[in-house]
Design a protein around this nucleic acid. Structure first.
Lengths: 191, 191, 191, 191
DNA sequence: AATGAATGAGACTTCATTCAT
DNA sequence: TATGAATGAAGTCTCATTCAT
């Protein structure tokens, strides 16, 4: 099974899978994905050997997307300053504008089907912009970063859920969530 | 008279379902649950009309369990003092000792199949011990409580994941997580 | 499995089965029958070895009922005169008043599960009151009787269906049907 | 392109269903039908969404078949003359030659699962060739036609049963039945 | 390479029958 | 004897995957 050529169809399938997973869960039939992508049922399996491979590919696709969004948000801003808030806002705005992507990503993470590499990448994104902070007593540097990154990530996701549920309070949630996160990871609120 | 319907079997099914859901996800076959509970496939459906009813029953079972654990942790301690920490520790310890229960509960909450009542109860548990705090600017009282309760809950769950992944750091995560949560919701750290 | 004693329960089961079969078809669960009869699921099988035996017993029960109704209608009327009309009216009135019995009987006959004896008895009932008529050319006496009896029976059943569907026309259907039947079997209409 | 969906397979399924229903009743397993049609179990459900749809499709298939047979029998014969006998003979001959079809059709009609449209079509076929006859006293025109059509239909079906049971008397039953039906609906026997 | 019909394992569920009480 | 909980075979239907076209 040589990787076939239509980059376009591959993208269509990834986008369709993202939406279908968001709507119906990861157990959604591959046929529904193919249909939404506008290709035949069998064609899906020319691009993704089986459903697990597709799940993994969607995961990569979404991680790349997040990475792109975060990278773009930081581009051109002086490192070490306001970086965190830029990333925070960019992530929340992206999730609000791409709820299917956010939902699918959460389901994939929760499914326990992500590879170690993918887990690590998702971690890395969560830690992306956390500056040097004092070690948590009893943890080494890597563990401290992971600890703070995790709290940052889950807080952001919680905020996104609230934003999605009450869009008219989006800005309030976004700001208050940001302050709460800063306090949680012991960064000065002025940051 | 005929054999009485056994409370024991119902409990066995709920426990088996919890474990199987934790291991295989909510899409796990009912046959696996019946087998683990040591009953015939058909027996499951005498106790739970169909799979959705079983899911819902497991949800109630786990919420009751959590409620029991939290209530017990608070029993006998003077209200308004150290209550939060007692609940925090009890929840994290329970989750560490009952990983299947914690995992199943999380999946059920994420599945969107919970009834409104169940959602509300899970919310209530999350807010249980949060004392009066100043309103978040722009939110009313209920929204403020929800906001803080949500952050508290997701932080606790994040800590549990870390505790499960690195049990030897359990106490450190638990303590540091607790402090982080207090700061996030703007409670004095000495609490 | 000795035949147990409660005649009353046996009758209750037969009556319940008749009603349930009429409502839900012969594929109705035995549990529904037991419930309607007010006995436990397992009790049914102490009175009827298995479902086929129950079907057969219901068939006998209904044939006996019809026989009783027809016999009663003829009792005391001088043989050979007006007998046919008495039987016709009695049968149609009985079916209208006992639609479940009629429906169940029809389903049993259509199911092809009747024993030869039962088939023969149902035939016999259909022929009960047909007086001597000239042989149909090409048929012997028994065949002629069967031929006329069959036509009489199916006509009566057709009339019953119409009566049930339009009760306000019951008498018209009953009379017109009777006349049509007489003509079909070449009996003088005045009979 | 992919294999085209085969009209042939759909027909095979309809024919197989007809035979299986005739042999085993409408409760027969879909697996038996698929097997007899020579396709996989799942294939049946690509052609018919579920069992009820299959039942309905078989019903349509058989009604169409009957309509075709009756239409063909009348084609080219001057209207209003001998039409009835042509249709009668064609129907009985068809049923004798296609006993499974006749049996399945009867079961479907008896099952109460036919749509109103299908009921009406089956009625229409039964009334097809009945010419103008005097009103039955107390019934309007439509009711009279229904009355006669019903009697005609049930008589024909009764004759078919007899023909099937004693094929060597087929012609005698057919003729005698025809005469009986004519008398029943008050048409001159010479017709 | 793309298609979508075909496949059949496996899911959920029902129910006749058995058997412990 | 009566009960009804327990059983598991069997039914309907879904869907990931294959393969003829």
């Amino acid at each position: 099974m040589a990787r076939p050529r239509s980059e376009e169809k591959q993208q269509a399938l990834l986008r369709a899978a993202t939406e279908i997973f968001a709507e119906q869960g990861l157990a959604a039939p591959t046929a529904a994905i193919a249909k939404k992508a506008g290709v035949a049922e069998g064609t899906l399996f020319r691009y993704f050997e089986n459903k697990d491979v597709l799940l993994s590919a969607v995961c990569d696709y979404l991680l790349d997307e997040m990475e792109r969004v975060l990278a773009q948000s930081l581009a051109g801003s002086p490192p070490g300053k306001r970086q965190i808030q830029l990333a925070w806002d960019a992530y929340i705005d992206w999730a609000q504008a791409n709820q299917a992507a956010h939902s699918a990503a959460n389901q994939l993470i929760a499914s326990g089907k992500m590879s170690d590499e993918q887990m690590e990448k998702s971690m890395r994104l969560g830690n992306l912009t956390i500056p040097d902070v004092p070690l948590v007593k009893g943890l080494d540097l890597a563990q401290t970063i992971e600890f703070h990154g995790t709290i940052c990530t889950v807080t952001a996701n919680a905020i996104i859920d609230m934003v999605v549920r009450r869009p008219h309070l989006a800005d309030i949630y976004k700001r208050a969530g940001y302050q709460a996160m800063l306090r949680a990871v012991e960064l000065p609120e002025g940051l």
